[in-house]
Design a protein around this nucleic acid. Structure first.
Length: 944
RNA sequence: GCUCGAAUGGUGGAAUUGGUAGACACGAAGGACUUAAAAUCCUUUGGCUAUUGCAGCUGUGGGGGUUCAAGUCCCCCUUCGAGUACCA
């Protein structure tokens, strides 16, 4: 009987649906295991062969865990909000909801063919109101919370208000924007608007005037991780800096916890490192420089406090508020010109053009340690958003300061013994300090760093600065607050309305605020975001709130928030919703959350390292503070699957002809390589007829063949339509079946590694499955297996397999597992094995990899239940024992021959036997061995 | 520039974590079956030198080192990939 994968796979996929084989319910009796794939954005192009790679890996793991008796949660859903659907809508007028749902259906169809064990009853889509209700709800929670830096957690803002009423803000330790101290009395005398304005500085979700990445072409702001090389990640349009009033999330308050949390996680070191760099913690010193003949104090941040005697100028960021105060009348015009010029430049231009630029402010600061006058400059190499937006420049020991000093001919004062700063600065944190000014330590500061190492000098300076109240030791983070507003249509609407220009939250029981219909998806004529086009909002809800709060804001045309949330909003807590997707009363029920806790295994690409994986961790930590979730980290173990690249094929056209020359003959002609659709190429041989039919211009193509065949060239490129190298999983399934596709994708190599898709090896895997099938059935359909007792040899082959696969799956070493299957089946074939007992266990072990054929064969073995209700077999060491063990005998480390010894032979016996062996005598040549090393079960090395 | 990571046959990739390379698969060559093809099965397959003595030498990007023993550990160099970039 032939192995008919089409019928088998269809049959079982239907059975799984009918019997709800993969439905998961909470079961306190069983240990839980939560595996999760990063859910896909359903793009119009459908799935290509690279997408399922991670899903297959998780599927294997999920099935394996289920066989081990775990209650496994393996859900799937869609990150359905996003830019491409909206861009498409703008171009075609097609509503994004329609294209999105069409794309989802296509995805689902493709996914179903691969045979995953997802529990589709738990599917979520971020664009569904009963899902985004909880995104909105979490946002409201953030709005009504502040971050307490003493208790190190988020707390309700009501508590803070009560403190303000009693004590003002002097005793409050909170992560804030810029706030000045106030008393209880002052607070109580404020108008509501004033109080709200003040509270905005404390809220975790707050409305802030910030410099944002504005993309004019897309008409929206972008988060830092959405900007790559100064252009937008989507579309590659220029991005400029612009000050706007935007919703922000106080992610920076969690910087330290986000950093500390990494230590407990089972993630790859490189990914943790990426996150650490992104968080960018740096310990340093804040120092205050008094400005000469002024009461302005300049605060700077430095990690090199030890270089304070090498400061020869100060630099302010052009955006700094101090610029205005410090510019002297004489310099006013020049400074104005410079500041406005930098404003016009896009991020990209700033990066591309590394020319040194700057302008003198006219003012001088006083070095607090030497009382020396230091000129204050303004330059865009200092960033407003980091530290204090001002630096003390030490050209001798910082390359950027050095370039600036050289350009404007400022003094360079070396502080490290023996360093040469004539050509470049000496940035290394090593060496012995010199040049501490005598005047400084004799009279004023009494700080002498001469003779100290850099590390010692930093400590000494820090201590001195703190003791003399010249500043303080602080820690700075690179991680900024996340900008949370997007001027888009296709996203979650904010549950926010305005009163007197101040935002208020729509109460939780009135959520969700549904996304309204709009006429068209572009901004309004007055420049409002697309939601400004909405005529029919969820007006009832909104009106109710506004009426309840009496005064409708007359100043604002739109009393409701018109921005929508960014892409990462919906993906930040979706893993929690999978636990309890139909709950109407909560994001996730407390008990259900107690059961599933967090994701045990998360699989997805590294591209989310600084976006999703930071935001989701932040979001989860916030919900943890609110006692919504019971674990502080959402993803315990994370595996990054590599990207599948395309493998493009080429034909070579001889210049100015319609003749194509085969790969190895192409050197003889002048040729142009042309991409050819990989689907009409097999093992690099071109299907000539298909090629002629592919496009009209090739209809009369002629060929110069080698050995009667046309061989194509190839290259690894990104998988994309324009390279004609997209391989659709449906095609592979049609030709080989889902089980072959699954096993082949895993066989390709380690899942963490990026690799080109190459169909050349798929026959090997397919052959293996067919060979297995042929052990069950002859061609004529006779069933070959019998209820005979397995032989010792067969048991050994089987248990070797069980052992190998059990440990491989835990380490995601699926490619070697598949090799083990091939070896095992080959051995069983050679042994003419027909024992049902052997195959029963073999099928169970195979089931995670190739579920369809496993079910089919399981049924043939007489089972009435699904193979996934079986128990994962344990291997028995007894069967693996060898009677004799082969030792490699080497002399001075060079292997010479092998000898068999009984398994239980001890070292002395082996040593003795080896020395007495005839062949050994030949190698020893009568000398006395200096040393004999016996490595158990492996090697005997004789040193002569 | 900085931070990670990698480099093994014609190809994808193995190697019990320091134990004597190249598992498994593809491809290729030869053979069996067949009128023929496909499918299937068998043999060979890192290189070099031998071959009616079943062997020898060499070999994991390059150069040094540690060790009885190095693809694996240490130092230097080369190349490639990923992330990040005026972060003071």
């Amino acid at each position: 009987m032939e192995y008919n994968f089409r019928d088998i796979e269809k049959k079982w996929q239907q059975k799984w649906v009918d019997n709800k084989t993969y439905k998961v319910v909470e079961d306190a009796e069983k240990k839980k295991f939560y595996v999760l794939n990063m859910f896909p954005y359903p793009s119009g192009a459908g799935l290509h062969v690279g997408h399922p790679l991670g899903y297959i890996a998780t599927d294997i793991y999920a099935r394996f865990k289920r066989l081990q008796g775990y209650n496994v949660l393996n859900p799937m859903g869609y990150d359905a909000y996003g830019l491409p659907a909206e861009q498409y809508a703008i171009q075609t007028g097609q509503h994004p909801a329609i294209t999105t749902s069409k794309n989802i259906n296509r995805y689902r169809e493709q996914l179903d063919k691969i045979g995953f064990c997802f529990d589709w009853d738990r599917e979520i889509r971020t664009c569904n109101p009963d899902y985004y209700q909880w995104t909105q709800w979490a946002f409201t929670k953030m709005f009504t919370s502040y971050y307490d830096t003493a208790q190190n957690k988020a707390l309700p803002i009501d508590q803070l208000v009560r403190v303000f009423e009693k004590e003002g803000n002097k005793t409050v330790h909170a992560a804030t924007g810029k706030v000045t101290p106030f008393t209880a009395e002052e607070w109580n005398n404020m108008t509501e608007k004033e109080q709200q304005t003040l509270l905005m500085n404390y809220r975790i979700a707050y409305l802030g005037e910030t410099m944002v990445n504005w993309c004019p072409k897309l008409g929206t702001v972008l988060a830092n991780d959405e900007v790559v090389d100064g252009v937008s990640e989507r579309g590659g349009y220029p991005v400029v800096q612009r000050k706007m009033r935007q919703w922000c999330l106080r992610v920076s308050a969690y910087a330290q916890r986000l950093l500390d949390g990494l230590d407990q996680l089972d993630w790859s070191d490189s990914l943790k490192e990426t996150q650490r760099n992104w968080i960018g913690r740096s310990e340093g010193t804040e120092m205050i420089f008094q400005v000469k003949e002024s009461d302005v104090k300049m605060k700077i941040f430095t990690t090199r406090a030890d270089t304070v005697f090498g400061v020869t100028f100060m630099v302010l960021a052009p955006e700094s508020k101090l610029v205005e105060q410090l510019t002297t009348a004489a310099q006013q015009e020049e400074v104005d010109n410079y500041v406005s010029a930098t404003k016009k430049r896009t991020e990209r231009e700033r990066i591309a053009d590394k020319k040194v630029s700057g302008v003198f402010s006219g003012s001088y600061a006083i070095n607090p340690l030497t009382n020396e006058n230091i000129p204050i400059w303004i330059s865009d190499y200092v960033l407003a958003g980091y530290g204090t937006g001002a630096i003390m420049a030490v050209p001798a020991h910082d390359s950027r300061d050095y370039a600036f000093a050289k350009h404007f001919d400022l003094e360079i004062r070396p502080l490290i013994d023996g360093c040469d700063v004539s050509e470049q600065s000496f940035d290394a944190k090593e060496g012995t300090l010199i040049n501490s000014p005598k005047a400084a330590f004799e009279k004023g500061s009494k700080l002498n760093l001469n003779g100290l190492s850099v590390a010692e000098a930093i400590t000494a300076t820090k201590k001195f600065v703190e003791e003399n109240k010249l500043g303080k030791v602080t820690t700075n983070f690179r991680l900024r607050d996340a900008i949370f507003s997007r001027q888009r249509y296709w996203g979650e609407p904010f549950p926010v309305y305005y009163k007197e220009g101040m935002p208020y939250m729509i109460p939780a029981d009135k959520l969700p605020v549904e996304l309204p219909e709009v006429e068209h998806f572009l901004p309004t004529e007055t420049g409002e975001p697309p939601l400004g086009n909405a005529t029919k909002w969820a007006w009832d809800t909104v009106n109710e709130c506004i009426t309840e709060n009496s005064a409708i804001d007359q100043q604002t045309i739109f009393p409701i928030e018109l921005n929508t949330m960014p892409g990462f909003a919906g993906s930040s807590a979706y893993y929690l919703r999978y636990m309890d997707p139909h709950n109407q009363n909560a994001l996730v029920d407390e008990k259900v959350n107690q059961y599933w806790k967090n994701v045990d295994l998360y699989i997805g690409g590294t591209e989310h390292a600084t976006g999703h994986l930071i935001y989701a961790r932040f979001w989860n930590k916030f919900l943890f503070d609110c006692q919504v979730t019971c674990t502080e980290e959402p993803f315990q173990k994370l595996v990054n699957q590599g990207m599948i690249q395309g493998r493009s094929n080429f034909v070579y056209r001889i210049k100015d002809t319609n003749t194509y020359v085969s790969f190895s003959l192409k050197e003889k002609y002048e040729v142009t390589p042309i991409h050819v659709d990989v689907n009409i190429v097999s093992n690099d041989y071109l299907d000539i007829e298909a090629f002629k039919a592919w496009r009209p211009e090739y209809k009369y193509a002629e060929f110069i063949l080698e050995d009667g065949k046309y061989v194509c060239g190839w290259a690894v490129e990104k998988m994309s339509k324009s390279m004609f190298n997209v391989v659709n999983p449906d095609v592979i399934i049609e030709n080989y079946g889902a089980d072959t596709l699954r096993m082949y994708e895993m066989f390709l190599g380690p899942i963490e590694q990026s690799k080109p898709w190459d169909t050349n090896g798929i026959d090997g895997v397919h052959r293996f499955i067919r060979r297995l099938w042929s052990l069950f059935y002859t061609r004529d359909g006779a069933f070959l297996l019998q209820d005979t007792a397995p032989t010792k040899e067969q048991l050994k082959s089987l248990h070797k397999l069980i052992k190998k696969v059990s440990s491989d799956i835990e380490q995601f070493s699926y490619n070697t597992s598949i090799s083990a299957f091939m070896i095992c089946v080959n051995e069983l074939m050679a042994q003419k094995c027909n024992s049902m007992a052997i195959f029963k266990d073999l099928i169970v072990v195979l089931a995670p990899f190739a579920p369809h054929i496993a079910e089919e064969l399981w049924e043939k073995l007489g089972a009435t239940t699904t193979v996934f209700d079986a128990e994962w077999p344990m291997y028995n060491e007894e069967y693996l024992k060898e009677d004799s063990i082969k030792y490699t005998i080497s002399f001075n480390g060079k292997a010479r021959f092998t000898l068999d010894f009984p398994a239980e032979a001890d070292k002395e016996t082996i040593q003795k036997a080896v020395l007495e062996n005839e062949q050994s005598q030949k190698w020893i040549e009568g000398k006395t061995p200096k040393k004999i090393i016996v490595v158990p079960k492996r090697i005997v090395n004789i040193v002569i």
